[in-house]
Amino acid sequence: MQQPQHAYILHKRAYRETSFLVDAFSREQGKISFVAKGAQRGKSQWRSLLQPFQALEITAIGKASLKTLQSCEGAALALRLSGDALYCGMYLNEVLNRVLHPELPMEGLFDAYVTALDALNRGDAQQPVLRQFELRLLDEMGYGVSFDVDYQGDPLRPGQHYRLLEEQGFVPVMPMRGSLTGDVLNAIAEGNWDAQALSAAKQLCRTALKPLVGEKPLKSRELFIKRVTT
């Protein structure tokens, strides 16, 4: 008998007349895919449970990569994200759906995801939540960047300008376009999110995430862009 796993739904699409094909992020197994048979029927209890941002306890059986959902219970009430917090949540899901490898457990990342969702649900400022999650994600995927020392292991000096070199770390440079000062990087390292640190972290994460999420642009970003331009 299999133990129930903690999981969140990342993505769901209709399958046949009455079923769903679901991609979920489970704490124990990483990204898993399963068929939820009959979940599209009007009377199915699974219908309301198989929604994003709902903490679930599921058992999915089968040896192949596509499993069959056997049981599914809500571990807590669904988070009721609304507005921008909801878009942020969708962004997290889209990123996770791109970067996770099937059936590779990522417990640290799962916990970071839960922390981020809780923070969004509480109404915390959204930018820092997203940046912290992204930095954690990079760390967990082995693309981590250390924000307190340069490529030789020396502490970052506040007045010095730095550039991030792939797979090496921060290299001291002359001030130029795209270079960042040591104090901004230190602020990111300490989680001291002022406006400068936020915009620097956003650029850094975006660049660092690129090899992970691929060339196709993330659609959730469009949800935000619209309002800034109009």
């Binding site: 993505h11 969708m90 962004y91 196709k216 659609k219 959730s220 469009e222 949800l223 619209k226």
Partner: peptide, 11 residues
């Protein structure tokens, strides 16, 4: 409906 994960945006 909007579903960024499926590549469906506002337009």
């Amino acid at each position: 409906h909007l579903s960024p994960i499926d590549g469906i945006g506002p337009a």
